[in-house]
């Protein structure tokens, strides 16, 4: 009995130790960037020789990063909104309509996920060169919408699949139009999935390097492309300072998301208990 108990304790200790190491592995590269951003010297050295804010001052003077950040924000916002609108429509069609060969249509709509991004980027580059729209904003926007569309469709379709469609019929019977029904009955029920899909789409678009690299004109770079190209030339901690700002941005997104999803079932717990199945009283 005692041996068994100590065996359990050893296993738990082992599991704990591994978990801590795993967490260290995940955090370390981000943590070291934050430390490095306060370094007083231009080269990477550990332990730091001194601390300063000079790299933040240097960052403040880099207009290319501001322009890139603004361009990335606008592009990611437009791509996310566009993909959410057409992706929700497609998700609705996939769930509600009787389509010919539904599995094939669905597989086709999700197929860009499997495509290596660099292949997609180069293919789009060649295509846009041929039809003469390279460097145009619409080319860039359509590319980003395409990259995030499969994620949006699969998340929204999954949410619509478990939606109770008698509610839609009830709303229509009570005289609500199709759009009113969508915004007041269906959308509130799938809102969590829409938020998750939106955040995921935004982050994916904001972080695109491979597909964007060839499509932007020099001088019109998005933020990750600008950083990627900067790092090819220099490796001073200016990038660490910018990365720290981006990490804070990510923490803010996570914080905001966990506030929004506070009492919701996490998509992570597939087999977990369903906590929220009560129908909301949104119909009048």
């Amino acid at each position: 009995m005692q041996a068994a108990a100590s065996g359990i304790r050893i296993r738990y200790l082992f599991l704990w130790a591994f978990t801590l190491l795993g967490v260290l592995f995940i955090i370390a590269p981000l943590f070291v960037v934050v430390v490095n951003s306060f370094s007083s010297v231009a080269y990477n050295v550990f332990p730091p020789e001194g601390f300063s804010l000079r790299w933040y001052q240097n960052l403040a003077g880099q207009a290319a990063f501001y322009a890139g950040a603004w361009r990335s924000l606008v592009l990611a916002t437009l791509a996310t909104l566009g993909a959410l609108i057409i992706g929700t429509m497609a998700g609705y069609a996939l769930v509600r309509y009787r389509l010919p060969m539904p599995n094939l249509v669905k597989a086709f709509m999700l197929s860009p996920i499997v495509m290596p991004k660099i292949v997609l980027g180069v293919a789009l580059f060649m295509f846009f060169v041929r039809i003469g729209t390279l460097g145009g904003y619409s080319s860039l926007l359509f590319t980003h919408m395409l990259v995030v569309l499969p994620f949006v469709i699969s998340l929204i379709a999954a949410a619509l699949f478990s939606f109770d469609w008698t509610l839609q019929e009830a709303a229509m019977d009570l005289g609500a139009g199709p759009l009113e029904t969508f915004f007041r009955v269906i959308l509130p029920e799938i809102s969590v999935s829409v938020v998750v899909a939106g955040v995921f789409a935004f982050v994916t678009s904001f972080d695109q390097v491979e597909t964007t690299l060839f499509l932007v004109r020099p001088g019109d770079n998005t933020l990750p492309v600008e950083m990627f190209l900067y790092l090819q030339k220099w490796q001073d901690p200016t990038i660490a300072a910018l990365s720290t700002v981006l990490i804070l941005f990510a923490v803010a997104i996570i914080g905001g998301l966990s506030l929004v999803l506070r009492d919701q079932k996490l998509p992570l717990d597939v087999g977990g208990s369903r906590t929220e199945t009560t129908a909301k009283e949104t119909t009048a």
């Binding site: 995940i26 070291v32 490095n36 990477n44 950083m227 981006l246 923490v251 992570l268």
Partner: peptide, 20 residues
């Protein structure tokens, strides 16, 4: 902790490994 790095740019994470 496990899932949040998805939100941090791949460029930032790769740079972190260079420093590390």
């Amino acid at each position: 902790i496990i899932f949040s790095p998805i939100i941090v740019s791949v460029v930032v994470r790769s740079y972190g490994w260079i420093v590390l």
